[in-house]
Design a protein around this nucleic acid. Structure first.
Lengths: 198, 198
DNA sequence: TGTACATCAGTGAACGCGCGTTCACTGATGTAC
DNA sequence: TGTACATCAGTGAACGCGCGTTCACTGATGTAC
């Protein structure tokens, strides 16, 4: 006489989805087996049918969060409408970085979840993959002859480090007093371009 | 007939020092009231004579960790021996950034402790202060007429973001496969200079 | 110089909580014959 | 087409742990008179 069938049917997916919502509000430490099971009207033990431990569930949620960030980056890149090939390549790289920073600011707990130190490797590659998007947009810039002679790996690390660090600064409590976020983001992205261009 | 006097004498300092050692190995979450009290041969309650809560103790340890990072940066800056004023200013800025990155790599858990999101404000300013060191070395570069026209605040955020992000990449598990750490650090610091210079 | 007394820095036991995880078990599903 | 049975996905209760924190209390210290 229960209103819910004995078998949930899609508990694994439901756990990840509910975990993502929890992480959206409270970050990675907000994901708990007992908590999520309660929300889904299921016993805590049921979760262990799908994940060997909490760590694995957190890793699945983190992957989902990274993919969310990456898809925002991809969308921002696709929204670039400039025709000139060289400027287009730069604009796509910049859009990619800006989207990363905006994700950190808009969805701070999710950002923390996405890029927290990895404890358990995911079972499949990220799709889309943020690092791959960055690499490919840098390759476009290079293909336009815009990149100065430097190790392409180092160039990618430089670009990533800057937007990642900027995200950390804006997302953390460490924002320098009275900082104009948008203007500073523009200036930082411009400095990245100058650091990379011929 | 105890070998230890009833009053410890310097428990506050001892707690911070022991907390720093714990954080050095296990990061901020490795700092625990019961644990430190046990190490010092004191009851957990005694800690509450000196800190209203664990959070305050952690904040004190974090400040100590930041100051440790900052003093490494200052030492590295002071070790620069170049005479030419403009090159000297750049070298000091670079040394400062490199020391920050090296601290993250050498003392990862301490780095995590130092720059974790702040929960409780410290009772006194950092001494030395990492952000102030960076600002002042950038001012030196500007005073040498080497800095291109940009908001000085944004310039500082750009430099800090890059080394902070680089630290995060190197300290996290997210190191791209087969990365040459030293060479990449050099390349990134060089890109920062290019991003800032006239 | 001695003494009463306020204050400070400790003790030791206990509370209460929430967590991940495990155990023995049951309801539902699907498949071989 | 029906049925036995392996397998899968749940239940519900409990374990055990370690933590921060609190309580009533005591030993040591310093200071006013």
């Amino acid at each position: 006489m229960r209103d819910r069938p004995y078998h949930h049917g899609a508990l694994e997916e439901a756990l990840v989805a509910a975990g993502l919502e929890a992480a959206r509000v409270h970050g990675p430490s907000g994901i708990g087996i007992r908590d999520l099971a309660k929300q889904l009207g299921v016993s805590p033990t049921a979760a262990y049918r799908h994940f060997p431990s909490l760590d694995h569930l957190v890793a699945a949620v983190a992957q989902r969060a990274r993919e969310l960030a990456a898809s925002r980056m991809r969308d921002a890149m696709d929204a670039v409408t400039i025709d000139d090939p060289a400027e287009r390549a730069w604009a796509r790289l910049t859009a990619c970085g800006r989207a990363y920073i905006e994700f950190a600011v808009d969805e701070r707990p999710l950002f923390d979840t996405a890029f927290a130190p990895i404890t358990t490797l995911p079972g499949r590659p990220d799709d889309p993959d943020a690092w791959a998007l960055l690499r490919s947009s840098l390759e476009d810039v290079a293909a336009q002859g815009q990149l100065r002679a430097m190790d392409p790996q180092a160039a990618a690390v430089f670009a990533w480090a800057t937007v990642h660090g900027m995200s950390g600064i804006l997302a953390g409590a460490a924002i320098p007093h009275g900082l104009d976020v948008e203007a500073t983001t523009d200036a930082v992205l411009d400095a990245v371009r100058r650091g990379l261009s011929v």
